[in-house]
Design a protein around this nucleic acid. Structure first.
Lengths: 211, 211
DNA sequence: CCCTTATATCACCGAGCGGTGACAAAATCA
DNA sequence: TGATTTTGTCACCGCTCGGTGATATAAGGG
């Protein structure tokens, strides 16, 4: 947008418009959630005419799918491991798992858009949720295979870890709107500390202290 | 509604209309979820004019709140205990907890409307979700106090049980739309069996076999 | 029986939605 | 330069939404 002699001249550039629309999806998701994520709202947010959504992306599903492919919604293995892979692989199994729980909580809490999408996933299926589901499932399984399933445990360690991950997911998602769960105050650090301690207790109970 | 000589005569009865509207909320929740649960849709479903929602319930929030007060959304302590309280109290703590997990899974799976509302809770707060949150939290805490917290454990048993409950909630809600989680196939009995076994392993690890 | 009142219907409003065709203007190329 | 293509705007459609005032009609009391 250039202004010359009281006249506004809009620069026309397909790539920029593309990016504007895609990033408008993200900021709208962060601001309003998945409800009300429609062509009108997105076009308004991008400062662009909604017909371009149809021209460039063949409609809302195409745009949303494009957004899904660009995003960084899920923590990397590095982030889940705490930032230092070499140090991580040196840990005992129980230390690894405790760290994993701790880092997963942190990673989810700092990704409000990811949380929004996870809730969206549960309430309906669409292009974006299907896309991100696949990414997440791959990422989880990769992490399992890299760090946790090197030895054949007699216990179904994968199921136990999945269960802890599910619990963390539910509690982080829920804590955005509701403070209390089963007597745990999820609006306070103390509540989350109790939870992390419970995770440690569970892990030690399942894999032993030193393994 | 009576039909006489090709003329339809509608019987007018406040109580019946009340009930029609309230039950329309339930059937609409079951059919379409919380999206699209509006005055127009509810009135259509009830076969009644929407203005009556305003007249009798002061609008949609009032109607939804009335629905929340009438429903049976949450399993009773009896259901969570497996149907026989006397037998339940005789069990060891670990048996109690395993049964609790098993029964909670069953109870949630058979309550699609409750699942719908739980997802709704996570995506926004309103009269109904606030109402049902309170009911649920009370019910959970009552169950804790009745059966699980009789002795002072050194472990934070409440946190562990809450965590397992959170995991079950997430996985049941999620399994309505998505089959796979962390390698567990939640569309199959086998996947759920792995999960229940994992719960048993966790419980035994935390409270011991015989306690 | 008629008259009142409770009950329910109807018609309509402004707003927002997804979607589209006609048009304007900048960019590109001959 | 002038013609063509690309890029973007605008006006409009039909629909559903939440919400309301005027109106019809069944129920019930005198």
């Amino acid at each position: 947008m250039i202004i010359v002699e009281n006249k506004t001249i809009k620069i026309r550039n397909k790539h920029i418009t593309h990016k504007r629309l895609i990033s408008a999806v993200g900021s709208l998701l962060a601001k309003k959630g998945f409800k009300g994520l429609g062509v009108n709202a997105i076009a308004r947010e991008a400062g662009v005419d909604k017909v371009l959504i149809y021209r460039y992306f063949d409609g809302l599903p195409g745009l949303i799918s494009a957004y899904g492919k660009e995003g960084n919604f899920w923590p990397s293995a590095l982030e889940l491991a705490g930032g230092d892979l070499h140090q991580f692989v040196e840990c005992s199994l129980s230390e690894k798992l405790s760290a994993l729980g701790h880092n997963f909580i942190k990673a989810l809490k700092k990704r409000p858009v990811t949380c929004e999408i996870m809730i969206w996933e549960m309430s309906e299926r669409n292009e974006l949720t299907a896309e991100l589901e696949a990414i997440r499932e791959d990422s989880m399984m990769e992490f399992f295979q890299m760090f946790l399933l090197t030895k054949n445990n007699e216990q179904d360690l994968q199921a136990v870890v999945s269960l802890i991950g599910a619990a963390i997911s539910y509690l982080v998602l829920r804590s955005r709107n509701i403070d209390l769960y089963g007597g745990l105050d999820l609006s306070s650090d103390h509540g989350w500390q109790r939870l992390e301690n419970a995770i440690k207790v569970i892990i030690h109970g399942v894999v032993g202290e030193n393994e």
